[in-house]
Amino acid sequence: MKAWLRWLILALFAIYFFGPLLSMLDFSTKKNGGGRTGAAWKALVTDEQVRHAIVQSLLLCVATVVLMLVLLVPTMVWVRLRLPRLRRLIEFLCLLPLTIPALVIVVGINGVYAWVNYFFGYSPLVLTFAYVVLVLPYSYRALDASLSSIDVTTLAEAARSLGAGWFTVIVRVVAPNLGAGILSAAFISVALVLGEFTFASLLNYQTLPVVIDLFGKSDSHVSVAASLGTIVFASLLLLLLSFAGRRSRGPKGV
């Protein structure tokens, strides 16, 4: 492709993508009578409801990442080492949430959440359980790629021959070698949880996206500010991820 054409296409896409983002910046700092104000952005910290929602969403991110790793890493390593025949099944199950829309799970999860609330109360943090399912396909892929790049069996056999138990093998030998995969699974999970609306809204928990939607009806300036904040935060997070950890692939051809 000709260089000028490439740059022209890039420029058009840049206008399309950054146009709305710049509009958000403009909109969120506009004063109703004219002029500029930072009130909407200030409200993100000063408004009790918004601040609480932001904190809840961030806590949800952390909780989801932790539970996802605790559930997925040992299972995947175990399957590779001891139950290779179950690999296809585990993969199928992990990718299933791509086929069953979140909305469908919400519709059917009322009964389950009645029990969850009974045991864990009504904090938004109980959403963690559903969110782990939601991030499963993406986390699985990231971890699977990472697992495939190391020789788990040899690592485990070496550790076992040195006297390590299975717990030590998984937590202290294999997991540290999955750095890149764990990192990327975690970041993608955060990006997904941060914007998750379907579960939170229909199960009535006040996470950030729910509060953004709520404010849209009264003070849309705050909603727009929070929306832009979310997009920028997630973009920076993913940009950071692209610099961290991921080893480069070998040269393509010659």
């Binding site: 993508f17 146009g19 709305p20 983002l21 509009s23 958000m24 403009d26 909109f27 969120s28 993406y138 993608i188 990006a191 997904l192 941060l194 914007g195 998750e196 609306f197 996206p209 953004i212 939607d213 849209g216 849309s220 909603s223 727009v224 929070a226 929306s227 832009l228 979310t230 997009i231 997630a234 973009s235 997070l237 993913l238």
Partner: peptide, 19 residues
């Protein structure tokens, strides 16, 4: 792209309302 495709959701609605 990741941010818009994966975090997006509600934010994108407001992006276009603001535009």
């Amino acid at each position: 792209s990741g941010s818009l495709a994966q975090t997006g959701g509600v934010s994108l609605a407001f992006a276009w309302m603001a535009t």
